[in-house]
C-alpha cells in the first residue's frame, strides 16, 4: 500500500525527492536539497506527530542526517535523509514544526557539530560545554586536549 505522505511529498517536490521504499510501513525517501527540509517537515506534520529519532552518519565528506518520523495512530514510520557537505555543516532546525526534535538536534550538534539554524537554544546536551571536538565524527582523535580535560574551567 503506497503511503499518503510520500505521495504528497512527491507531488510538491517532484525531482528533489528520491523514493527508496514506499510500502506505507517503513517509507524511505531522500531529499536532495537541504533548503526544502522545513517545507517538507510541514507536509509531514499532517500525517506524523513526532520526530522519533535523528541519526547522523558521518560519510566523509558528506554528513547524512536521517530523520525518522512516527505517529501515535499506527505503526508507520517515515525515514527522511538529507545529505549536507562538510564545508557547510548547517541545516534548518525543524523544532518550530516538530517540538520533539529539540533535544535530538542538540545531541546531533553535540556529537557532530552540525548547526541547526533557528534552534531556540543550540547548546551541548550530553557533553560539557568546553569539551574539545565532536566525538562521534569519524575523524575525532583523542588529543592531549581531550586527555587532559578536567572540567575545572567550567563555570557553575
Amino acid at each position: 500500500m503506497p503511503s499518503k505522505v510520500v505521495d504528497a511529498l512527491k507531488d510538491s517536490f517532484k525531482d528533489n525527492v528520491t523514493v527508496l521504499s514506499d510500502n506505507g510501513v517503513e517509507d524511505v525517501i531522500v531529499l536532495s536539497d537541504k533548503k526544502l527540509l522545513k517545507e517538507a517537515a510541514k507536509l509531514i506534520k499532517k500525517i506524523h506527530d513526532i520526530v522519533f529519532l535523528i541519526t547522523v552518519v558521518d560519510r566523509n565528506p558528506t554528513f547524512e542526517i536521517g530523520y525518522v518520523f512516527s505517529n501515535y495512530v499506527d505503526k508507520s514510520i517515515l525515514n527522511l535523509r538529507v545529505n549536507i557537505m562538510q564545508d557547510d555543516l548547517s541545516i534548518d532546525s525543524i523544532t518550530s514544526v516538530f517540538p520533539s526534535a529539540d533535544w535530538e538536534e542538540r545531541e546531533a550538534y553535540d556529537m557532530f557539530g552540525i548547526k541547526f539554524n533557528g534552534h531556540p537554544s543550540l547548546k551541548r546536551i550530553l557533553l560539557p560545554e568546553d569539551w574539545p571536538g565532536h566525538p562521534l565524527r569519524k575523524d575525532f582523535k583523542v588529543t592531549d586536549d581531550v586527555r587532559n580535560w578536567t572540567g575545572l574551567d567550567l563555570k557553575f
Binding site: 506527530d49 513526532i50 520526530v51 522519533f52 501515535y72 517540538p99 520533539s100
Partner: peptide, 8 residues
C-alpha cells in the same frame, strides 16, 4: 495528550 504529542 497534547504535551505527549508535542514532546514525543
Amino acid at each position: 495528550k497534547q504535551l505527549v504529542k508535542q514532546l514525543g
